[in-house]
């Protein structure tokens, strides 16, 4: 899961980067409306955490232009103003959820997972495919009921594939999910993660379509 955090306070921004990374997401941080617009135009994110009061404008403007482009990336608003009118304006402006400062980090993670899940059209929190279960809340994977230990990056690759099991995911799409802008992308990282995953969850669980990408193999 790749999340864009738009927050101008450096300490909070840093806390969100560290905190949301703990729950297995890749985080990119920007501090202004202009940077947020640029980031949202350039990359695809699973979700956006958006502060309302930014130095060069209101987060609502970012939200408006995002929705104006027809982009349905889920957005969770963060704000220090908790007047009902503000909340209504935010939700009517196209936000998916709303959290007043100060908030609980775990609650924010849960809300982000919820809006991402809703956006992908799933009702259940967990992902399941042919005996493999992935719980994004506890970051745990079980195969036929047996827990399997996977690394954070492996989990992200698996989650990306399991979200839409029949859809092909290209290598660059997966890299996008795995790495923020600051991360150094190793050229064969995705292949390594897939290889490791196959060793852990089953040799034939993931199918390679040469030159196109990867997808979950349909259960027999």
């Amino acid at each position: 899961m790749r999340i864009l955090v738009v927050e101008d306070d450096p300490i909070l921004s840093d806390g969100l980067r560290a905190g949301l990374s703990l729950s297995g997401a890749t985080i990119d941080c920007v501090a202004t409306c202009a940077d947020a617009d640029a980031a949202l135009a350039a990359s695809r994110f699973s979700a956006v955490v958006l502060d309302l009061m930014l130095p060069d404008g209101s987060g609502l403007e970012v939200l408006q232009s995002l929705r104006g482009r027809g982009d349905r990336t889920p957005v969770v608003l963060l704000t220090a103003r908790d007047a009902v009118a503000d909340r209504i304006a935010g939700l009517d402006g196209g936000a998916d959820d709303y959290l007043g400062k100060p908030f609980d980090l775990d609650e924010l993670s849960a809300r982000i997972r919820a809006v991402v899940r809703r956006a992908s059209g799933r009702a259940a929190a967990g992902l399941e495919h042919g005996g493999i279960r992935l719980d994004p809340g506890s970051l745990s994977v079980t195969v036929d009921g047996v827990p399997v230990t996977v690394s954070r990056r492996e989990l992200m690759v698996l989650a990306a594939l399991m979200e839409r099991p029949n859809v092909l995911r290209s290598k660059s799409e997966l890299e996008d999910r795995l790495y923020g802008w600051q991360d150094e992308v190793e050229s064969n990282a995705v292949e390594v993660h897939i290889h490791n995953l196959r060793a852990k969850i089953g040799k034939h669980a993931i199918e390679t379509v040469r030159g196109l990408g990867y997808r979950m193999r349909a259960p027999a």
């Binding site: 306070d9 300490i11 909070l12 840093d14 806390g15 969100l16 560290a18 905190g19 703990l22 502060d51 963060l78 220090a80 007043g100 400062k101 100060p102 908030f103 609980d104 980090l105 775990d106």
Partner: peptide, 13 residues
């Protein structure tokens, strides 16, 4: 509230 949110988040981290 913003620095308080930062404090809380960092503490949880």
């Amino acid at each position: 509230r913003t620095p308080l949110a930062g404090l809380k988040t960092q503490a949880q981290v």
